[in-house]
């Protein structure tokens, strides 16, 4: 799955390299900047993968945590070991969290790498019109990857909870992915404005705030708070469900 994620920036870079110049303001954000600066491949790839590809992979990993073991019939053997259910739940969530951290990082670094290979790399123009050096640009790129990792922690907590509900891993995966799509659709409806700050996908695309000069940390802080809330709620739900569950398989 990490390879699938890594394929996104490679596809973008090759497509832009082979095609003619992209007119400004068309296509995904930053696409027109790639020919001027290869580092933008990483940023564009993250813009492209946030709405679907990253939630898709996170949904697969998080949905598989408990339901996967139950589906294979290995869950009861895991519980035979004197480790306890809470610890198993924590370890499973930690595994999903590691993927959540690595996923955006792979997209960012592959993007920067393929961009550097196919295009020239130089000072990076920020959204504010200021330019920063390549080193600082890499720091910003890693910050965006960290932002996306935080953004997806809430979704993986939801996936963990759904995974405790069923013995069919595919069902848990699909439900998690569908939820992420539903949240984004709700976020796009202006009639539901009161609900928007509570949707886990609300700040997903606000990582652009890290590309301003000076960096605007407001959305990062709000995002951490929101995702923390989702982790607490769905972690508690997963705990309640998994501790009281009759494990038969």
């Amino acid at each position: 799955m990490l390879c699938a994620l890594a394929a996104i920036p490679i596809l973008i870079a090759v497509a832009v390299r082979l095609s003619s110049a992209v007119p400004a303001g068309r296509g995904p954000a930053f696409l027109d900047r790639i020919t001027q600066n290869g580092l933008f491949v990483g940023v564009t790839a993250m813009v492209v993968s946030v709405p679907l590809f990253l939630p898709l992979t996170v949904g697969v990993v998080a949905g598989d945590t408990i339901a996967g073991e139950a589906g294979q019939g290995t869950l009861r053997y895991l519980l035979v070991a004197p480790a306890g259910r809470i610890r198993l739940l924590l370890v499973k969530y930690a595994g999903a969290a590691v993927f959540v951290v690595v996923g955006p990082l792979v997209v960012a670094l592959t993007g920067a790498g393929i961009g550097a290979a196919l295009f020239r790399v130089g000072p990076v123009t920020l959204l504010s019109g200021d330019t920063i050096g390549t080193g600082e640009a890499m720091v910003r790129l890693l910050l965006i990857a960290a932002y996306l990792a935080v953004s997806l922690l809430g979704l993986s907590a939801i996936g963990l909870f759904i995974s405790t509900l069923t013995d069919v891993p595919v069902g848990a995966m699909a439900a998690t992915v569908v939820l992420s799509v539903v949240a984004q659709v709700l976020d796009a409806l202006p009639q539901l404005e009161w609900l928007h700050p509570w949707l886990f996908s609300h700040y997903w695309l606000d990582f652009g705030d890290l590309l301003r000069q000076p960096v605007s940390w407001d959305s990062f802080a709000a995002n951490v708070l929101l995702q923390g809330g989702y982790i607490a709620v769905f972690g508690a739900l997963a705990y309640g469900r998994f501790i009281t569950k009759d494990v038969l398989s």
Partner: peptide
């Protein structure tokens, strides 16, 4: 079993 669900009820209340 009822007690196990207590955190799941308490956390949203706190939030």
């Amino acid at each position: 079993a009822w007690l196990r669900w207590l955190p799941a009820a308490a956390v949203p209340a706190v939030i």
